[in-house]
C-alpha cells in the first residue's frame, strides 16, 4: 500500500481486507450487491471462498454474518452506510449487538460527499444510530493510513465494530507507519484559542481551516477523533478546558453524532466553553458535486474557519 496518498477510505478498506485475506483465514466478508462500490471486491478476488454475496438483502446479510461469527469467523459486512445502518438497524441491534457477535459493519459512502446520488444515499444519521448501541465500537478514519489501522484494529477486537468509510478520495493526513490507539484522539495541531474536534473527511478540512485561522492570528488546536465510541473524554475535556472554545466538525447530522458526544462529555464534566457543532443542521442532503455540497452545507475549510471565529466571539 505505498501509493496510498489521497485514497478514499473505502479503497483503503478494500486493500486492507485483501491483505488480511492472506494473513487471517478466519476473516469472511459479506456484501449486498455493492462489492465494487464498497471495495470488498478486492477481498472477493483474494479469497473467493470466504466472500459471500448476499444479494440486495441487507437484513439477511447482518444475520448471516452473525451466524458465521457464532461459528468462529470474523465477519466484515459492507453496504452503503444508509442501508447497512438504516435498513438493517434492528438486526444490528438485536442480532449483532445483543448477541455480542464478532461482526464488523464496515459501511461506505457515509456523509454528503457521496455527492450526485443525492439525499436518499447520503448517510448522515449512522453515527447517531451506531453510537447508541451497547457494546458497539464506532470508528471513522480520516484517511487511508488511519483506515488501514482501523480495519486491522476491528479485526483484532472480538466484538461489534462500526467502521464509517467514505466514497471520496480523502486527503492524506498521516504519514505511512503512523500509530494509533483505539479510543485515543490524535492531536494534529496544537493551539490555545479554540479546540476543533473532527472526524473522517472533516479532519483534513479542519486542518485547512486551522491554517486559515492562523493567518488571522487565531491559534486553533485540531484533534482527529477517529474513535467516536469510546470517546477520548480525557483529551476532549483537557483541551476544551484549556481553550475555552470548542468546535466539532462532522459529515453527519449535528444531532447524535460527534458533536453530541463531545457536548455530553463536557456538560457532565462541568466544563463550560463556547461551543458549536458543525454538521448537517437537521436537514437531508441533495444532489451536487462533493465540493459544492461541502460549501453549501458549511463543511468546507472556509466555512469551518468562519464558524470557529463566530464561536470565539462568544468565548468568555
Amino acid at each position: 500500500m505505498e501509493e496510498k496518498k489521497n485514497l478514499a477510505t473505502r479503497e483503503a478498506y478494500g486493500l486492507t481486507l485483501a491483505a488480511l485475506a492472506e494473513e487471517n483465514d478466519k476473516i469472511v466478508v459479506l456484501d449486498a450487491d455493492l462489492a465494487g462500490s464498497t471495495q470488498t471486491a478486492k477481498f472477493a478476488k483474494a479469497a473467493p471462498e470466504r466472500f459471500v454475496d448476499c444479494g440486495i438483502a441487507e437484513q439477511d446479510m447482518v444475520g448471516v454474518a452473525c451466524g458465521l461469527a457464532s461459528c468462529g469467523k470474523t465477519a466484515f459486512l459492507s453496504s452503503f452506510a444508509v442501508f447497512a445502518t438504516g435498513r438493517a438497524f434492528e438486526q444490528i441491534r438485536n442480532s449483532v449487538c445483543y448477541g455480542k457477535y464478532n461482526v464488523k459493519v464496515a459501511a461506505t459512502h457515509a456523509g454528503i460527499t457521496v455527492g450526485e446520488d443525492g439525499g436518499t444515499h447520503q448517510s448522515i444519521l449512522d453515527v447517531s444510530l451506531m453510537r447508541s448501541l451497547p457494546g458497539m465500537t464506532v470508528i471513522c478514519p480520516a484517511d487511508a493510513t488511519c483506515t488501514e489501522w482501523a480495519v486491522r484494529a476491528a479485526a483484532e477486537l472480538n466484538g461489534p465494530v462500526y467502521l464509517r468509510l467514505g466514497r471520496l478520495a480523502a486527503p492524506a493526513v498521516y504519514e505511512a507507519g503512523q500509530e494509533f490507539t483505539l479510543g485515543k484522539g490524535q492531536l494534529l495541531r496544537t493551539g490555545s484559542d479554540i479546540a476543533i474536534f473532527a472526524s473522517g473527511l472533516m479532519v483534513s478540512q479542519a486542518l485547512e481551516a486551522a491554517e486559515l485561522l492562523a493567518a488571522e492570528g487565531v491559534k486553533a488546536a485540531v484533534v482527529d477523533i477517529h474513535t467516536i465510541k469510546p470517546l477520548d473524554t480525557e483529551l476532549v475535556c483537557s483541551l476544551a478546558e484549556r481553550c475555552g472554545a470548542v468546535l466539532t466538525v462532522e459529515e453527519h447530522s449535528i444531532i447524535g453524532g460527534l458533536g453530541s458526544a463531545v457536548a455530553e462529555t463536557l456538560m457532565e464534566a462541568g466544563i463550560s466553553a463556547a461551543f458549536q457543532r458543525v454538521g448537517m443542521k437537521d436537514t437531508f442532503g441533495q444532489s451536487g458535486s462533493p465540493a459544492a455540497l461541502l460549501k453549501y452545507y458549511g463543511l468546507d475549510a472556509e466555512s469551518i474557519a468562519n464558524q470557529a471565529k463566530a464561536t470565539l466571539a462568544r468565548k468568555k
Partner: peptide
C-alpha cells in the same frame, strides 16, 4: 442456547450463517 432471539424474523438468517460456516469449514 446457540443464538439470542426474540425479534421475530431474524433467526433464519443466523441459522443460514451457521450452516454456511459448516460448509466453509
Amino acid at each position: 442456547v446457540d443464538a439470542s432471539t426474540g425479534s421475530l424474523g431474524q433467526g433464519l438468517s443466523l441459522a443460514c450463517g451457521m450452516a454456511l460456516a459448516a460448509k466453509m469449514d
